[in-house]
Design a protein around this nucleic acid. Structure first.
Length: 294
DNA sequence: ATGGTAGTAGAACTA
């Protein structure tokens, strides 16, 4: 039996984040049996003001990332830094566009069954959706539309996108085999998934009807971070707009790894690795990593 | 209530 690590990371421009990617993938690979020394284990009862985000990656069994699902590459395919990615020791599939969106999957071994978009005959989202299979685990990596405001037409597109995910999972009968829906969902599912739920009831990533929609769409899937961390306030997004958001732990958990029952049974842990958010020129998101016994 | 930052682009949009 071996362990594989599957991660999701909204990089907010893959070209600007090459240094972060290189360091993160390299350090985790080098630390295969290591732990993050110097951090105390997170106490879920500690007050939020005292809960530093760096605690999120305390006592985590770091190791090489086998599959990295990326969102917001923000680059056309012809300009994708494929050579740099290969030099990091990864295969790569990608589909992007100028300035916005863009998804990719990096993998130690080649992927199988790769496709972009929902492939269901309706308006497709090839730069927001990529599907592939890795060592028997089916993976749907999505960059869910943010939606701007709950009054904005883009919010309706977001809801429709979530319906399309549900349709994809239903028509492809994913539920009886190891399958992951992961990525930047732009949804904080519950009140403990953001620092300030009271001030964000109308926020396009926390509006109750949106969360109800997300709950219906993800019905039957297990939120792996919550499975292993039932009540901890760890976040995967820390706004550039909020001063010292990382060290003050003012953030959102909007990046998720959702697993079918059979995939959840294989899972051996899930954590948010906040270290890259603290490095030079970071993304505003930070990776979420899930471990699987295969 | 607004603005705060970052990325892409080379002004204004997205997040």
């Amino acid at each position: 039996m071996s362990v594989i690590r599957i991660a999701t990371f909204n990089v907010n421009s893959i070209r600007t984040r090459l240094e972060i990617l290189s360091r993160w993938l390299g350090e985790r690979d080098a630390n295969s049996e290591g732990h993050n020394e110097g951090c105390v284990p997170c106490d879920p009862n500690i007050s939020n003001s005292k809960l530093l985000a760096r605690d999120a990656h305390a006592r985590v069994p770091y190791g090489a990332i086998d599959v990295l699902c990326i969102q917001e590459t923000k680059v056309e395919d012809k300009d994708f830094p494929l050579l740099r990615i290969k030099q990091l020791g990864y295969n790569c599939v990608y589909c992007g566009e100028k300035s916005y969106n863009g998804v990719a999957i990096l993998s130690k071994e080649p992927l199988e069954e790769v496709s972009f978009g929902f492939c269901d005959g309706e308006r497709d989202f090839p730069t927001r959706v990529v599907y592939a299979k890795y060592k028997g685990i089916r993976i749907l990596n999505t960059y869910v539309p943010q939606g701007k405001e709950i009054t904005h037409p883009d919010y309706q597109v977001k809801l429709e996108f979530l319906d399309r995910v549900k349709k994809f999972m239903d028509t492809n009968s994913v539920y009886d085999a190891p399958f992951l829906w992961l990525g930047d969902m732009n949804v904080a599912p519950t009140e403990i998934d953001l620092t300030n739920p009271k001030a964000n009831k109308e926020n396009v990533c926390f509006y109750l009807p949106l969360r109800e929609k997300f709950s219906r769409v993800s019905n039957g899937l297990v939120d792996l971070f919550r499975k292993f961390n039932p009540d901890t306030r760890h976040y995967s997004f820390f706004s550039y707009l909020v001063k010292d958001s990382l060290t003050r732990n003012i953030g959102w958990r909007v990046d998720h790894v959702l697993a079918t029952e059979s995939a959840a049974k294989m899972a051996d842990g899930c954590y948010i690795d906040t270290a890259p958010r603290s490095w030079e020129r970071p993304s505003d998101h930070t990776p979420v990593v899930a471990l699987f016994k295969v």
